[in-house]
Each structure stands twice: as C-alpha cells, then as structure tokens.
Amino acid sequence: MLLRAPIVAVALLAACVPGAAAEPAAWWDADVEQALKSAKENRPELERALTDVPKDQRKGMAFLVANMPDGDLKALKAEFLLANVELAYKARKEMLWGKDVPEEIFLNDVLPYANVDEKRDAWRKEFYELCVPMVKNCKTPIEAVQVLNAELFKKLKLGYSTQRKAPNQSPKESIEQGKASCTGLSIVLSDAARSVGIPARLVGTPLWSDKRGNHTWVEIWDKGWHFTGACEPDPSGLDRGWFVGAAAQAKKDVFEHAIYAASFKKSQQHFPLVWAMKNKNVPAENVTDHYAKPAPKAEAFRLEVKVIDANKKRVAEKVTVTATADAKKAFDGTSRGETADTNDFLTFELPPNAEFVVKVGTATKTVKTGAAGEKTLVEIQK
C-alpha cells in the first residue's frame, strides 16, 4: 500500500494542474456516433465540424451528420459543413419569417446543403448575397418566392433546355451552362429559397399517369406547403401550374405514378431519381394526397398543340382553332417554345365530336375531336 501511495498522489496532483484536464466527452448522441463510424477515414473531418460548431447550432450539425448519405459521410469536409450551418442559422435569424419556421422544418428543409443527388456545391453564401436584396421588402415566404421565381432566373440567365448536360445538375453546373432540366431549375429555386431562410423541397413524379414522362417542381413552406414550377412564375400566385391537371390524376399506391417530396431526414420511402433509378439514397415522403383529386365529369375534348419550325424546334406562335361548321366558334392562344417544359402544351377545351381547323400563320391542319374526356396532341409546322 505504501508503494502505491505516491502514484495515486501524482495522479491526483495531475488532475488538479491547470491545463491538464482530460478532453470533454463527446456531446452528440448515438445516431451521430453511428454515422461517424460509417464515415471511416473522413471521421476526423466530421468530428471537427461537430466540435467547432457553436453550441446554439449543435442540433443542426448533428441533424446533418446523422442523416447524410454514406457518400457525404465519407467526403464532406468540416469547413463546408460549418459554413453551411452558420449561414443557414444566420438567415433564420435575420429574415422576417425565420422565427415562424418550426425547428423540425428548418432542420429538414432549410439547413440541408443538397436536395437530391446533385454535386455538393457551396451555394449558400452566393445565393444569400444575391437573393436578400430581391426579397428585402417581402413580408411572407410566399411573396418572397414569387419574387425569386420571377427575377432570379433572369439574373442568372438560366432557363429550361433539353440540351443541358445532366438532369440533376448542381446550381453551379446549371448557371455555367445557362440551361437546366426541370429538376436542375428546381434545385436552383429550392436552394435560393433556403438561402434566405425559406423552407423548400423538391417534389416530383417518375411518370405521369398518362405515361407522358416525369416532372419535378418545388414546394415552399408558409404555414403549410405550397407548390410552384421553377422558372415558371404565375402572377396569380402559388399552387398553380401547367401540370396541375396531370398531378390531379396521380396514383398514391402505384409507385411510378405517385408524387414524392424529397427529404433529408431518413425515412422508409425513397425519392425516385429517374436518371438513376437504382439509387435509393434520397429519402422522401409520398405527398400524392396533396395533389390527387377525383376527376370531374368530362364535358370537353382536350386538344394539345405543338408548333415546330423547319429544324423541329418548338416555337412560340399564335395558334387559332376554328370550328368548321361555325366560324364564330374560334379559340386562340400561344404555343410553347423551347424554354418551356417538354410536357407543357398549349391546350384547348373543345366541344366533343366536332371538326376544327388549327391555323398557325399560313399552315393549317384539320382535326376531329373525339369523346368528352379524351385528348390528342397535334403537331404543326409553321
């Protein structure tokens, strides 16, 4: 016992020496610890992010680490994560609507650095500086998103194009090209909204129920979720768009025809990535009930018109549709050009079982409508 006493005394003395205290225990929970194990060689970067983050931002950093996909766990650096979290909390504090956003929604729909599987850009600072002046006079998130959707894409000189390099481009990739898919445009609008503290998420369907293709758009939160088409602002407000009719026919229990909202928080459902269907790493929520509605009794035939030029490119031209039997029954509108979504057509609601003449400039085409509730697409070259 006498021989062991000096050792004990030395140990006690060391514990009392200033600066010799043991490192504090990790503050994070078991979910974060499990994520750190999955990070493997990148664990030190994530630990530094967790250690260096201010105490009032710890919950946000823990949420990101606990829910990020394996690829991010093994690749993202502390500096990237710390900057993202700092700017997200900054926007929440400074923007008028920040205090009204529930913490759960802030964590899942403002704080995340990505929407789906796009390249991980450090977009938040640039978008914050670009977007704050645009929305400084706005009173609500809805008003702010309307402004962003109307002004941001013009400022960036960015629009829809089937010639973009990839469907899931990051903001930087889309801005550099000046073109993007509906998904790429939605990523830009979602990130822009998040940069000024507005909850935003991508929503889409892998295949419309009429099998005409897929589509992606944006939902933003303002005391509830509201939708809008990216780079397709409607002066009348949110919850409008050319795809409303198709969305109303979505089928909740049919995987390919349902509508999903992307999530950062892990869930049992995954967001269908039509460009990478085997990738099930993006969590999602089935939100079909928000869109699907019983189809009203059809009373008209739907005629969709697509106008092309000699190079087979879509062009915006005045279109007139006139009933053969009664010239007074005339309808007109403007066809969609190349900057409109490929599934967005000029549509006329016409009397069923009748004959009409479609005219674009000097070009004409005769069309016979079918039964009420049916539709057809007419392509005409100007």
Rank of each mutant, 00 (worst) to 15 (best):
Q177E: 15
L350N: 06
K280T: 15
E379P: 09
E47M: 14
F227T: 01
K119P: 14
L64M: 06
A88K: 04
A200M: 11
T205H: 05
K251A: 04
E219L: 03
A15S: 06
Q269Y: 08
V147M: 02
P6N: 07
L158V: 04
L73K: 05
W225V: 03
V321T: 05
R336P: 06
D31G: 09
V378N: 10
A298F: 10
I105D: 01
E219P: 14
R164C: 12
A371L: 03
P102R: 06
T364M: 05
H215E: 02
E176Q: 10
A371W: 12
N353A: 10
V196C: 01
L346K: 00
Q169M: 04
A11E: 15
A122S: 08
R314H: 03
G60T: 09
I142W: 01
Q268D: 09
T376S: 05
A25H: 08
N214S: 10
A295L: 08
Q163A: 09
V110I: 14
D344C: 05
S38I: 10
S236D: 15
E103L: 05
K297S: 11
E151N: 09
G241K: 00
L148E: 03
E33C: 07
T228Q: 13
A26V: 13
N343D: 11
N214K: 07
N42T: 01
I142D: 10
M61P: 05
D222Y: 03
G229E: 03
D121Y: 01
G197F: 08
N281M: 12
P235E: 10
T183W: 09
K93A: 09
K223F: 13
Y89G: 05
G60Q: 06
K280Y: 15
K297L: 10
F243T: 04
K154A: 12
V32H: 13
L377H: 04
A66M: 06
A261I: 07
R194T: 02
L202I: 12
V65C: 13
A292M: 04
A316E: 09
I220H: 10
A122D: 05
W217C: 13
E143D: 07
K139N: 12
L46V: 09
Q169T: 04
V254H: 11
R194W: 02
V147E: 06
A15W: 12
G229T: 01
R92H: 09
R302G: 05
A91Y: 03
K55Y: 07
L12F: 13
L3K: 12
A22C: 04
W242P: 01
R4Q: 13
V101N: 12
L107M: 11
V254S: 11
L81I: 06
D341M: 08
P54V: 03
V17W: 03
S186F: 14
D70P: 05
L130N: 04
G245D: 01
W221M: 15
K136P: 01
G361S: 10
